[in-house]
């Protein structure tokens, strides 16, 4: 394969700067000793990181987000594995419709989903409850999990399961010992992507939280729309570091592009 020329290198450099600029700025601002947003900061101080500790709101919101992400990613993965085995296991009448239904949350504008969930939950009197949030998030993240799990199910040689059956394994054993280990990268990748998507979700969540179940993105959003102090920057910096750490781990074990494209690409 030919390598890039000067123009391509320059282009990539400028593009990388563009992608990194807003993140660098947020991280930079969070170290300011001043009480307002300034970049580059006039000094280095951890004042605004300490301020996080004095704002239990943010910490509570982060805890809600973590719990929400773990719960919804786990439920979504648990229901997507059998669904992917069904959809990826061969044709049957209604298969395409089923797949289209499970992927449809990607095509419906999120703001529409947000008000639909609000209407539904408030009719049932469940608006703002944690489990109401969880199941709304499950619907939103199912397409991400399904795509990754499906990709690994489709890539599976069907005769492997048949070989195990022919050797006398009952179907649950075939699943546990043969199928699951073979699709586990897709399952883990799907769970992580689902967790991150849920952890970052704003547009839907903003409609269906109450003060007790406010998530981190919602808390940040409402804080930003009211005041802009360096506190949001320091909270964001912590969130960025958390994501970057998770990302590096995922990239090691699964490949970031595979995770996001959803198929083998190396």
């Amino acid at each position: 394969m030919r390598r890039n020329g000067v123009f391509a290198k320059l282009f990539s450099l400028v593009f990388a700067l563009f992608m990194l600029a807003p993140l660098v700025v947020v991280v930079g601002v969070s170290f300011t000793p001043e009480g307002f947003l300034e970049f580059p900061p006039s000094g280095i101080s951890l004042r605004w990181f300490r301020a996080i500790l004095d704002n239990p709101d943010f910490i509570d919101a982060a805890i809600v987000s973590l719990q929400l992400g773990v719960a919804s990613a786990t439920i979504a993965t648990a229901i997507c594995i059998p669904a992917a085995l069904a959809i990826g296991g061969g044709r049957f009448p209604g298969r395409d419709a089923l797949q289209a239904l499970f992927l449809s949350p990607l095509t419906v504008p999120t703001v529409v989903l947000g008000i639909a969930f609000l209407r539904f939950l408030s009719t049932l009197g469940l608006n703002g409850t944690f489990w109401g949030l969880v199941f709304c998030h499950v619907v939103i993240i199912v397409p991400f999990v399904l795509r990754l799990v499906l990709a690994s199910v489709v890539g599976l040689d069907p005769s492997i399961a048949r070989a195990a059956t022919s050797l006398g394994a009952p179907s649950l054993t075939v699943f546990r010992r043969i199928t699951l280990p073979a699709i586990i990268p897709g399952v883990v990748g799907g769970w992580v992507l689902a967790f991150i998507t849920s952890f970052d979700e704003l547009t839907v969540t903003v409609f269906i939280v109450n003060p007790a179940t406010t998530t981190l993105p919602v808390k940040l959003f409402s804080h930003i729309t009211q005041t802009t102090d360096p506190l949001v920057a320091s909270v964001s910096t912590v969130a960025i570091l958390f994501t970057v750490a998770l990302m590096l781990v995922v990239d090691r074990i699964y490949g970031l592009d595979r995770l996001l494209i959803g198929e083998g690409s190396h």
């Binding site: 005769s159 492997i160 048949r162």
Partner: peptide, 10 residues
């Protein structure tokens, strides 16, 4: 049974 793709458990 020996499968065409061998179907070894990877």
């Amino acid at each position: 049974i020996v499968f065409q793709t061998y179907a070894l458990f990877p």
